[in-house]
């Protein structure tokens, strides 16, 4: 493993979350499009299938990935268009992680009981 610093890990997480979200989006669109077969179609069956807990944990990860990818995207825009952005890219990345945590933890609070409590 190359011992890179903040920039390398920001890049790795951005790529991983990006690929994961692209795959999720594909699945999501296919899934929602099943609605066109009506209430007797496969849509409801799939929905029930996705209510199992592994997919709820997955949903949690999707939310965290969206928050991280969005805010790191802003970090990249700042770096691309300003010199100071490049200088403070390390602290900016910690900021991105902090914002991800600040938004992610309440989401966790809301979704965790649903995962283990059913609903």
């Amino acid at each position: 493993m190359y011992r890179g610093r903040e920039g390398q890990w920001a890049f790795v997480l951005h790529r991983l979350s990006g690929v994961a979200l692209a795959l999720y989006l594909l699945l999501h669109v296919l899934d929602i499009s099943l609605v066109m077969y009506g209430p007797e179609g496969p849509f409801n069956a799939f929905l029930a299938f996705y209510h199992q807990w592994p997919f709820r944990v997955g949903l949690l990860m999707v939310i965290v990935a969206v928050i991280y990818h969005a805010f790191n995207g802003l970090r990249i825009i700042i770096m691309d268009f300003t010199d100071w952005g490049v200088k403070v890219q390390g602290p900016l990345w910690y900021g991105v992680l902090a914002v991800t945590a600040v938004i992610g933890i309440p989401v966790l609070w809301k979704i965790l009981p649903e995962i283990f409590g059913g609903a």
């Binding site: 190359y2 890179g4 903040e6 920039g7 920001a10 890049f11 951005h14 790529r15 990249i76 890219q89």
Partner: peptide, 9 residues
Amino acid sequence: CRTAYNCTE
């Protein structure tokens, strides 16, 4: 370039 900064380091 994906700005991983390894080059700068």
